[in-house]
Design a protein around this nucleic acid. Sequence first.
DNA 1: TAACAAAAATGATATATATCATAATGATGT
DNA 2: ACATCATTATGATATATATCATTTTTGTTA
Lengths: 231, 231
Amino acid sequence: MPEVIQKTNCTNCLFKSLVFNKLNDSELDFLDQFKIEKIYQKGEIVVNEGDTINDFLYIKTGLVKLFKTGLDGKDHILSVAKPQDFIGFLSMFSNTNYQYSIATIENSTLCFINVPALKKLIENNGVFALDILDKMSLAVDGILDTRISLCSRNLRGRIALLLLYFSDEVYHKDEYILPLARKEIAGLIEMTTENVIRILSEFRHDGLIEMDGSEISLLNKKLIEAISTAG
Amino acid sequence: MPEVIQKTNCTNCLFKSLVFNKLNDSELDFLDQFKIEKIYQKGEIVVNEGDTINDFLYIKTGLVKLFKTGLDGKDHILSVAKPQDFIGFLSMFSNTNYQYSIATIENSTLCFINVPALKKLIENNGVFALDILDKMSLAVDGILDTRISLCSRNLRGRIALLLLYFSDEVYHKDEYILPLARKEIAGLIEMTTENVIRILSEFRHDGLIEMDGSEISLLNKKLIEAISTAG
DNA sequence: TAACAAAAATGATATATATCATAATGATGT
DNA sequence: ACATCATTATGATATATATCATTTTTGTTA
């Protein structure tokens, strides 16, 4: 359960330009009545697969994973999402219930916006509607790209891709703490836990990375990129 | 090149209810000025990767494939699309150029609708905007589901999934003519051409299917479904 | 119809990946 | 501080898949 629930003001929100830049002040005021902000610790469940979709979720800060538990009991991670990834748009329009679960993998602040209220704004503001379509389209492009390139890569290529993803897209640093356990990585890039561990060790032996538990530092990014492309 | 170009009338179109059911007659008349219909033979290129996106593409009849040519020279099929799949919505909003190529794999009739005209309608008709969001969302859900389940299946499972896809989603029959060559199937479900052939032969030897060239008939659907689920 | 090219088919072999077993390490609760 | 459990780690082996080589079939064109 989120520990803190905040009532903040959309018009003053640092992030409004990222999501709601096509709305005017009175529209933002309207939205204020229908939104709530929650602060989560790392590792908390935000929604469970099957839950009714009442709110559009927006990640203000932090990192979450979208996942499904398969018939084999293993978790499959559909996507890791960070601020501006607009994962909330994904099944909000096509389904009444979540097709996946969401959990935080970093301390995160999420904004919950009532779906009917949001739909009313879309209906009444055509420019906003087009903007939402743009953002949704971009989000989808990204997820599809990642998924397809995962399928056609070998294990080393997938690990390389993952390391680069966290370095380039999430932390913007060559050193970072992997927010996912080896087992979770396995579920994200569709391989066994043992092979995740094995290949990370391989990369260390080959001088590509330094590694202490979940602390990772990329030593030879050029080569990692080459492996990611060639794989 | 498409052999025939037709000027038809949206208001009388059999398919308008599938795509444009939220538009009134005057809006449909407006659209008429900005659309064109083309008839393609099987195997024709509709758009090339990198082409400027000028039109929203709607599949009236037939079957197309969306594909990219990889660095290795092999084609990777992103998706096979049939009427009502609304693939045209995919990167229309997020990109000015196609991120993939499109070719017909059956004789097909496609409708080309000018993008700025369509956007104007979206901007002016909020209910239509929400409807487009719904359809786009559904299209994406489908593609993602397929992709993710492909990644986590073994070769036999993937072939089973493919056979069922054409049977259940496309032809609605247990006998059909595979519209894709073995090599294309390989590019669609990420395996080698040899293994596609081998596993299809295996399925025939095991009495799961009958096969003569591209004529396929599913003999034991229950078992094929089991293989698809278990794989 | 012959001649050719492409696709389909099959087997042998190499490589990549998963599975199983076992140990070391680290975290958690008592 | 100890027992317990999950995670990380590594090796041995089995299995799945890709690659390479060769033949057969099919379709196309002269």
